[in-house]
Amino acid sequence: MNSKTADRLATGVFILIATIIVAILAGLFFYIFINGFKNISLEFLTSPSSNVRAGGGIRDQLFNSVYILFITMLITVPLGIGGGIYMAEYARPGKVTDLIRTCIEVLSSLPSIVIGMFGLLVFVNTTGWGYTIFGGALALTIFNLPTMVRTTEDAIRAVPRDLKEASLALGITHWHTIKTVILPSAFPSILTGAILAAGRVFGEAAALLFTAGLSTPRLDYTNWNPFSEQSPLNIFRPAETLAVHIWSVNTQGLIPDVEEVSSGAAAVLVISVLIFNLAARWIGSMIHKRVTASK
């Protein structure tokens, strides 16, 4: 075979590979949405799930997912931004910084099931809380923290050095400079990163199986007292999320309409993740436009 033919053949193979990758995504989306939309209705979204009968909805699971995500971000965002500020502004090259980098690397490469096991050991058994939203959120925090720290660090490092110097040269302290000059400039990138991370957290299940549990108590949505057993806002109650629900109905559920419930739930999950992605992109491009327009 001469080199020209080989070149043409190789080009063909690469195009084929690209086509395969696109086809995989297209196939997945096609399946998720075609099957999903058939099963999504207002009733599906607003009625409670059933353990045995057909026709259950995903109301509680959807609420739990959003609520756990909210609690997780409430813990992760400040911690992650703090860690990111430390890494970008205070960390001096040396052993301690290397140690923290290693820790971030370790945390980010831990399988989520392992994080779930740690959560079970500490937030469920050692504390004696049992399966709780709070325990789940803490496990997800471990899962999410490295991303948040990296995002913040990168965003801060991308802030022009002149701005920081300008502020310091005016006799403003480092910390006040971080608060008033660096963080505002880094905010759009941090926000984009946080939204993307939120999408990942929303779809996570393995870390929640043994921390937030596989069940939800009967919830009374009119009860807003966060200390009440039946209140959806109680963070010390077990909560099955949407992603966990898909897994549990498929592997240990008794309901006859597994296929329908899971396709509906999967579609809702994927749409939510898509919304997170689009929101992040949209905010990113908005900011980009604003920055370039002001010049």
């Binding site: 002149d162 300008a166 502020s167 002001s294």
Partner: peptide
Amino acid sequence: IGMVFQKPNPFP
């Protein structure tokens, strides 16, 4: 002892 830099660097 204040300082003014090479490139104008006003805050946004």
